[in-house]
Nucleic acid binder design. Structure first.
Length: 441
RNA sequence: CGGGGCAUAGCGCAGUCUGGUAGCGCACCUGCUUUGGGAGCAGGGGGUCGCAGGUUCGAAUCCUGCUGCCCCGACCA
């Protein structure tokens, strides 16, 4: 992609409304635009990151046996009246009337709807376990949206919903999502810490929040340092097998958010292992049993032929929030530093002197070779001074920058710079291509 | 929802107190020079001053009402 043709409205100055670093950098890097309080458009650069995040989520959900569906944003109030939540949910629910004066709502979550889908198609325990997930926009009419997409009113949400015959089955489903979450967040370059959580309005009695530590986190969190060193379950994890040893390892040490904190229990953690920090919640998983299946009569026949309500769980990740969390965890004074897995482009090629025959030839040849090899390249062919180009590249945070200047071009050399470390290396064209294609691989 | 604040060009701001034909920096367009860390000079384009009323010969400025947005707190993925 040529930068001269790319819609990247970067800002040199800090927008005054942005208080936290991720919000500021997302606006400055031209990733998002606020349309209304807590409602954002995603511009090309931001959209690319969001797509990468979603792709990883899908891979790991599918790996864990979940199946993707898509449910509407607009729901009928009827289902919510049935579950009893229409009155309970309160002002956060955006309620709408259609032209026939029928009560609709913009979905804040989808337990009722997925339960309806389930009950209308599944009759037997033989069809279980089942896990359906979707990625969809949700709306919660927060009293005070803030921090950009970290706490917006409209936000993208991946929600998975599991259906099992009994508690044991549901527990296994919960464990599968638990492991999938560890893998997912790890692939974002984040270090997830599962913490026991309150179940809130979703209900239920088994719940974990996945927290990443960040100075700007919304809540105080406390945990045992050993959790920071646990190995992430590998790609070869057998999701059909017994995952409980993994879960036990990850839930054995102390970890709690502010509202669940037990100061006395925390005292039992050796002093040098106590971590007291701030955290961002990027995922939340619940087991809630028959809370919805019972009132909504989502019943299946068990082996004895009795109709029993299914045991359910729900498992959320907010991709839009995740993008902000990644920036909170990975940036410096110059801008964003994307982990390779979610970077909007693999690398940027900076042509320091567009219009110079030799420099253009080297830079464009490099771009073509890299793109043919499947590398995603943002090619800065804009006629600007070097300083401005470097500042832009640093701001948007592509993991690697390849600088092609007239001096190096004459010698057939380019400079490869690592955004995170700042390390620069001068390489021949062929060396650079080999290296960069290999790193992408 | 309690408390505080802001609204003037794409962005950041001055002008409002004390009414008199709307300004600065960045960005944008043209030209020349410049060219390895956000260039310089010259010229140029762009604003119903959030909206609606009112006062006045005259309102960005004074008065009334409304709307939007931000910050602190309570609440939340």
């Amino acid at each position: 992609m040529r930068l001269s043709r790319y819609f990247l409205p970067i800002l040199k100055e800090d927008p005054k409304e942005a208080e936290i670093v991720s919000h500021r950098l997302m606006l400055r890097a031209g990733m998002i635009r606020q349309q209304s309080a807590g409602i954002y458009s995603w511009l090309p650069l931001g959209k690319r990151v969001l797509d990468k995040v979603n792709a990883i989520i899908r891979e790991e959900q599918n790996r864990a046996g979940a199946q993707e569906i898509m449910m509407p944003t607009i729901q009928s109030a009827d289902l919510w009246i049935e579950s009893g939540r229409y009155n309970d949910y309160g002002q956060e629910m955006l309620r709408i009337k259609d032209r026939h004066d029928r009560a609709l709502l913009y979905g804040p979550t989808n337990e009722e709807m997925v339960t309806d889908i389930f009950r209308s198609h599944v009759r037997s325990y033989r069809d279980l376990p089942l896990n359906l997930y979707h990625l969809q926009w949700k709306f919660r009419d927060e009293v005070r949206p803030r921090f950009g997409v970290m706490r917006s009113r409209e936000f993208l949400m991946k929600d998975a919903y599991s259906f099992d015959l009994d508690y044991e089955g549901a527990r296994a489903a919960y464990n599968r999502m638990f492991v999938a979450y560890l893998r997912t967040f790890s692939r974002f370059g984040l270090q997830p810490i599962p913490m026991r959580a309150e179940t809130g309005p979703i209900g239920g009695d088994l719940s974990h929040e996945f927290i990443v530590l960040a100075d700007t986190g919304e809540s105080a969190v406390y945990c045992d340092r050993t959790l920071l060193d646990l190995p992430i379950p590998g790609e070869d994890t057998d999701f059909m097998g017994d995952l409980s040893p993994i879960i036990e390892a990850w839930t054995g040490a102390y970890a709690a958010t502010d509202d669940m904190h037990d100061a006395a229990a925390f005292e039992d953690v050796p002093q040098d292992r106590r971590v007291s920090a701030r955290g961002i919640e990027i995922g939340h998983i619940f087991y809630f049993g028959t809370k919805y299946s019972a009132p909504m009569r989502a019943l299946v026949a068990n082996q004895e032929g009795e109709m029993v309500p299914v045991h359910m769980g729900s498992y959320g990740i907010g991709p839009t929030r995740v993008v902000a969390a990644i920036i909170e965890a990975s940036h410096d004074d110059a801008g964003i530093i994307w982990p390779k897995s979610v970077a909007p482009f693999d690398l940027g090629v900076v042509n320091l002197k567009p219009g110079d025959e030799r420099t253009d030839e080297i830079a464009e040849g490099l771009v073509v070779r890299l793109e043919r090899a499947g590398v995603e390249v943002l090619y800065d062919d804009v006629d600007q001074r070097a300083g401005a180009k470097f500042a832009t590249m640093d701001l948007i945070g592509l993991p690697t920058q390849v600088v092609v200047g007239p001096r190096g071009a004459a010698a057939g050399e380019v400079e490869v710079k690592d955004r995170a470390t700042g390390a620069k290396e001068t390489l021949s064209l062929d060396e650079a291509v080999n290296r960069l294609v290999h790193e992408k691989g």
